[in-house]
């Protein structure tokens, strides 16, 4: 798996690493700038995140008030509030419901021009998505976090490794989310239109990633199955659990490791699917 990972990050096998890194950085930068132009959408989006933050937070706190020991799913009230409010920011940062660029380009035929570029399509799309990620980190986290901190008591990390682990976990969640969306969008290579799969994705991802309620509130066998057998918890639930220190240190790190495995597997799968699609494009002429 490690080998696959390395090749994913290689932009063009024959070129020196530094040139590849520069190209990747430039692509990230252009992804960042693209989102920087949507200033009004940022404000509108943050407002919406905040309203839903209030709605979810109050409901979960009411559940906690009636729960045995006041800890539904093993979270205390500060942890629940943090889970909700950081979750509202992280939702856009991770980009679960990011734009369906790839399927649009496949449908319009523009995807052919992606193949003419010197950068592998998966790499180029990933770079653009990381640009989007950086922009969202700077703009979309802050609103929900401030409002959440003003109106509720949030949990402050007590372990030194929590914040760096959370940062790593958020990046892995973004890569995982990117991988899932790429695969969903890539169905358009074969189905001509990714609308159906995208609708199913939108439907299932919010719930299974832990947006509507922490997955720990599900029966344990179901939660564990989700974690191991699907990438969904790695998109939102894992970074949030890491941040609120839901588990002891070893398990906290273990969750991130599991998330990393999923991210690598997803990227490898993206490469494979893109490879197959390219062969199909070349043979059938789109």
């Amino acid at each position: 798996m490690g080998g696959i990972d390395a090749s994913v990050l290689t932009i063009s096998p024959g070129r020196p690493l530094r040139a590849s890194v520069t190209t990747f950085g430039a692509l990230v930068g252009s992804g960042f700038r693209r989102y920087a132009t949507y200033r009004q959408a940022t404000i509108a989006g943050s407002f919406t995140n905040i309203v839903f933050g209030f709605l979810r937070c109050y409901v979960l706190l009411a559940v906690a008030a009636g729960a045995v020991g006041g800890r539904p799913g093993g979270y205390d009230t500060a942890q629940l509030a943090t889970f909700v409010w950081v979750g509202q920011g992280l939702l856009t940062v991770v980009g679960i419901w990011g734009p369906p660029d790839l399927s649009d380009r496949i449908r319009s035929g523009d995807v052919a021009s992606d193949l003419l570029r010197p950068v592998a399509p998966v790499t180029a799309y990933l770079a653009a998505d990381l640009g989007r990620f950086l922009h969202a980190v700077l703009t979309r986290m802050i609103g929900p976090l401030i409002v959440g901190a003003i109106f509720f008591t949030l949990a402050v990390p007590t372990r030194w490794q929590t914040v760096p682990l959370f940062a790593v976990s958020a990046v892995l969640a973004t890569i995982g989310s990117f991988g899932c969306r790429f695969l969903i969008n890539a169905t358009a290579y074969w189905l001509h239109d990714a609308r159906g799969p995208l609708v199913l994705w939108t439907l299932s991802s919010g719930l299974l990633a832990g947006l509507y309620f922490p997955l720990r509130m599900l029966p344990e066998w179901l939660a564990v199955t989700l974690w191991v057998a699907t990438p969904f918890p790695g998109l939102l639930q894992t970074p949030l659990d890491v941040l609120v220190e839901r588990d002891p240190p070893v398990q906290q790190a273990g969750l991130v490791l599991l998330q990393a495995c999923w991210a690598v597997a997803l990227l490898a799968l993206c490469r494979l699917v893109q490879h197959r699609a390219e062969r199909k494009l070349v043979v059938q002429g789109g």
């Binding site: 509130m217 599900l218 029966p219």
Partner: peptide
Amino acid sequence: VVTVFVLYRATAVVG
């Protein structure tokens, strides 16, 4: 609706 059922797994009374 499922969400409502899941939340009530943790408690018998909400609000």
